[in-house]
Design a protein around this nucleic acid. Structure first.
Length: 216
DNA sequence: GCGGGCGAGGTCATTACATCA
DNA sequence: AATGATGTAATGACCTCGCCC
């Protein structure tokens, strides 16, 4: 900002209508700038600058020192306000007054800027939260799908095993599960296969794993 | 101590406008 | 040139909180 004058103008042509700039050269600031003239046209409707006096003080009409005119870029304005916002997103009266003085704005304008800034922050925060939740969901969903797939694969393997293997597997299951909690396939195989024995230790291990952690 | 009035300041929804694609 | 989308300043309604009587 211009530390010499400490006054700001609104320069819509420079940055989406939100650039503030300083000046001491009077209305020459607006020459050739359609949008700023338009701003003047609308000044009766918008309370932001209700009169020329809201744009600049008398000192800005000093045509003898137009070179002192300083624009406060949006970056500069935003930098100061953003810096203050980062420090504390709530605005206590002292800080509001101080910022308003520094920027040459009405305290109310500073308060409004903070209100809107908090609203924007909240919107962005919601978007960030959504992204995090979605990533978490996608990861869980992926894990779930792979577990279901693996489970189906193991089920189909168990169904095709020879009866003796299944019988030993069910005996193993009975050590850990009640009838209610044992996989239904265990019970149905138990009923139809009276004397199973494991012939392959690796199959026994796989079946045990399936029975203990049927869903991964 | 308790409750009502009041002002300040917050959120939220909305409007008005400028700018851009 | 017209138009819809977007970003931002500002407003109004409503709510909460602290203070005072």
């Amino acid at each position: 900002m211009d530390h010499q004058s400490g006054h700001l103008f609104f320069d819509p042509s420079a940055c989406h209508g939100n650039m503030l700039f300083l000046g001491s050269g009077g209305d020459s600031v607006f020459r050739g700038q359609r949008t700023m003239l338009s701003m003047e046209d609308h000044s009766k409707r918008r309370p932001f600058f209700s009169s020329p006096g809201d744009f600049y003080d008398e000192e800005y009409y000093d045509e003898q020192s137009p070179e002192k005119k300083r624009r406060l870029s949006a970056e500069q304005k935003v930098h100061l306000l953003e810096k203050s916002f980062e420090t504390e997103n709530k605005l206590e009266p002292e800080r509001k007054t101080e910022l308003a003085k520094k920027l040459g704005l009405q305290p109310r304008q500073v308060a409004v800027w903070f209100q809107n800034r908090r609203a924007r922050w909240k919107t962005k925060q919601l978007e960030r939260d959504y992204d995090v939740l979605k990533a978490s969901y996608d990861s869980l969903r992926s894990n779930y799908d792979s577990v279901v797939k693996e489970n189906e694969k193991l089920k189909s393997e168990v169904k095709t095993k020879k009866p003796p293997q299944i019988w030993t597997f069910l005996s193993f299951c009975s050590l850990f599960f009640s009838e209610e909690s044992a996989p239904s396939i265990c019970l149905s195989q138990l009923a139809s296969n009276p004397s199973p024995r494991w012939t392959d230790p690796s199959e026994q291990s796989k079946a045990a794993s399936f029975s203990l952690f049927p869903f991964g």
